Simulated scan of single mutants.
Amino acid sequence: MIRNLAADVGGFTSNAFLVAGDDPDARTVLVDPGNEFDVVSRVEAAIDGLDAVVLTHTHADHIGNVDAVVEAFDVDVWGYNPDHPLVDHALADEEDTRLGGHDYRVLHTPGHKDDHVCLIRGDGAVVFAGDLVFADGGFGRTDLEEGDRARLIDSIERLLASTDERLQELHAGHGPSVHRDAREHVELALRAARTY
Score class of each variant (00 low, 15 high):
residue 72 A to E: 07
residue 44 E to L: 15
residue 96 D to K: 08
residue 77 V to G: 01
residue 184 E to D: 14
residue 45 A to Y: 00
residue 85 P to R: 08
residue 8 D to N: 12
residue 74 D to I: 02
residue 117 V to S: 01
residue 182 A to K: 06
residue 12 F to Q: 08
residue 154 D to R: 11
residue 133 V to G: 00
residue 171 H to K: 01
residue 100 G to I: 00
residue 27 R to K: 15
residue 175 G to Y: 05
residue 6 A to S: 13
residue 134 F to Q: 03
residue 22 D to T: 13
residue 119 L to H: 12
residue 159 L to W: 07
residue 108 H to E: 02
residue 129 A to S: 15
residue 166 R to C: 04
residue 86 L to D: 14
residue 40 V to D: 07
residue 125 A to T: 15
residue 177 S to V: 00
residue 157 E to S: 13
residue 22 D to Q: 14
residue 148 D to M: 07
residue 133 V to P: 03
residue 10 G to E: 14
residue 92 A to E: 13
residue 48 D to G: 15
residue 139 F to C: 02
residue 193 A to F: 07
residue 34 G to M: 05
residue 103 D to M: 09
residue 14 S to I: 00
residue 40 V to C: 12
residue 127 V to Q: 03
residue 68 A to S: 14
residue 49 G to I: 00
residue 117 V to E: 00
residue 182 A to W: 07
residue 18 L to W: 07
residue 126 V to R: 03
residue 32 D to T: 07
residue 114 D to G: 06
residue 21 G to S: 06
residue 184 E to P: 00
residue 126 V to I: 14
residue 188 L to C: 02
residue 38 D to T: 00
residue 21 G to C: 05
residue 158 R to Y: 07
residue 50 L to M: 11
residue 185 H to C: 08
residue 76 D to G: 05
residue 37 F to G: 02
residue 183 R to C: 10
residue 22 D to V: 06
residue 76 D to A: 05
residue 151 R to A: 14
residue 172 A to H: 04
residue 192 A to W: 08
residue 129 A to F: 06
residue 171 H to Q: 03
residue 50 L to D: 12
residue 64 G to D: 09
residue 180 R to G: 11
residue 88 D to N: 15
residue 65 N to I: 04
residue 51 D to R: 02
residue 156 I to S: 06
residue 121 R to V: 01
residue 65 N to T: 05
residue 91 L to E: 06
residue 163 T to C: 14
residue 107 L to K: 01
residue 54 V to P: 05
residue 35 N to F: 06
residue 151 R to I: 00
residue 171 H to D: 00
residue 141 R to S: 13
residue 189 A to T: 07
residue 95 E to Y: 02
residue 49 G to A: 15
residue 55 L to A: 01
residue 152 L to N: 04
residue 150 A to L: 09
residue 190 L to A: 10
residue 12 F to M: 11
residue 74 D to N: 15
residue 104 Y to T: 01
residue 128 F to Q: 01
residue 127 V to T: 13
residue 174 H to D: 11
residue 145 E to F: 09
residue 184 E to S: 14
residue 151 R to F: 00
residue 81 N to C: 13
residue 35 N to R: 14
residue 132 L to V: 15
residue 25 D to N: 13
residue 151 R to S: 08
